[in-house]
């Protein structure tokens, strides 16, 4: 199996607000406006933050469920909330997905069709069987179309699930094995 990732894990997090340089990051304003004193944001707060930052641009803002998935994807201390460094990583990843989506959605209709979605997923390096690909498209399309919100939800889950799979396929033999509790833990957390 040939895995493609999305860059190295982020550097160890510093203390929010502890470094002058960090405070000059243009994203920090959005983050602190929502996060307040604890320096962590929940799914509801993330949704508000992304909406306020007008991240989706002309697209429909993210729904709460997608925001929960985003936190789950990057939350490594299992607190189910997000610090600034995780927020920065998310922003970068989201921007990549947004650029990708816009390059497919040439007419700015806000949706892509299943064939384009298929190509998009393949071009991100996922090697899935036609059956798995088909099921994903059925799961994330409405009336045969995929919105930006659904596209991001799909990408978040694919990234999380692929990460889980890779960690359990240490020998890269293409098979992952789970005990019961581990299986439930992995499948229920995203």
């Amino acid at each position: 199996m040939n895995y493609q990732g999305y860059g190295a894990p982020p550097a160890a997090g510093g203390y929010p607000g502890g470094f002058p340089g960090q405070q000059q990051d243009p994203l920090y304003g959005y983050f602190t406006a929502i996060a307040g004193q604890d320096g962590q944001i929940s799914a509801e707060e993330l949704q508000a933050c992304l909406t306020q930052a007008n991240f989706s641009g002309g697209y429909r803002p993210f729904n709460l469920e997608t925001c929960r998935l985003m936190i789950s994807m990057l939350d490594r201390d299992m607190s189910y909330s997000m610090g600034f460094n995780e927020f920065k990583e998310l922003w970068a990843v989201l921007n990549g997905w947004k650029q990708h989506f816009m390059s497919i959605d040439r007419d700015m209709s806000g949706t892509v069709d299943p064939q384009e979605m298929n190509q998009a997923i393949s071009s991100m390096g996922y090697r899935l069987s036609p059956q798995a690909m088909n099921s994903i498209i059925k799961r994330y399309s409405s009336q045969g179309k995929i919105t930006f919100d659904d596209y991001v939800a799909c990408c978040v889950k694919l990234r999380s699930l692929t990460d889980v799979f890779r960690k359990r396929d240490q020998a890269q033999q293409g098979m992952a094995t789970f005990q019961y509790d581990d299986f439930i833990h992995c499948t229920m957390s995203i």
């Binding site: 994903i136 692929t162 293409g174 094995t177």
Partner: peptide, 19 residues
């Protein structure tokens, strides 16, 4: 599951959990 464990290839894992 077999012998208390489940083994999946990547397409099976993605297909089952995404759908």
């Amino acid at each position: 599951c077999e012998n208390g464990k489940i083994s999946l290839d990547e397409s099976e894992w993605i297909g089952l959990t995404m759908y």
